[in-house]
Amino acid sequence: MDDNKKKQWTENTIFLVVILGCGLGVDNTYYLQIMTFIGINTLLALGLNMLMGYAGQVSLGHAAFYGIGAYTTAILSGTYGISPWAALVCAVSCAVFIAFVVGLPTLKLSGYYLGMGTLGFGMIVNILFREWSTVTGGSSGFVGIPMLEAGPVSFMSGRNYFFLVWMVVLVAVLLCRRILSSRMGRALRSIHDGENASLAVGVNTHFLKLQIFMFSAALGAVAGFLYAHFVMFISPESFGFMVSVKMVTMVVIGGMASVWGALLGASLLTLLPEVLHGFAEYEMIIFGLILMVVMIFMPQGLTRGLLDIYEHSRKRDKRHGN
């Protein structure tokens, strides 16, 4: 057990070091911006990873919570001038509450039905963003989201925002790992393995699933908050069905049931479109192909896949070496 803990601590420290390195080392605002986006997407992927990878519940409408986070802070701080930090609290509470209300009946479903349920939910929220134009600005979007400030520090420039986002990501990662190594985490993994057996052991599966759903919604809302104050302009398109799908893809490609997988998946899916810009009309085709190839050869996701390759080559080396 202690080995595991040591391993975790090492990983976390390396992670911190890398963040610091990138943040301080990179000067190009464009790259900083991209990495900030990776950070925001990582938050989304982390939340969904806990839900999908560990609790085994699919959610095809998670962009809704992303949007709720963004729009709540936009409306409260933009229209009503409330301090953004207060708006953050509201945004997260709002998302958690809605997750509770939606999750209570929906999480009793399973398989396809759960997918359809969450899909429907996502669509309803998106329509809300679009149609409630007086409040949300409708399809044309919401402008005038204020900048974030904390005392003397203003989070406008690339570097400052980069660190803000990645600190939040670090905290989220620590939080997720904490949960996973706890009794709750064990229970989550048991639900994923066999819900009936889990029930037979006394786990209140419905309640647990609901809690994780609310947690992932909270993370999504935080991501939305950070996004809104970063780009300072939001529109319903950013929180539509395609975004939900992208979120699911991040989790699956990166590797479900792996915290670093969320990071990997988020990175890949943020970088890939940028990289493929150069290919103009072939962008989508190549994107699709890459996804297909990964899924065919590494269905457990990149994290597992890469680890397997690494271990495989080590074994081969051992055999050859000795």
Partner: peptide, 12 residues
Amino acid sequence: MVPEGRQIFSPL
């Protein structure tokens, strides 16, 4: 209950 087919949690 000890369920049919054992149903232990394989990944744990």
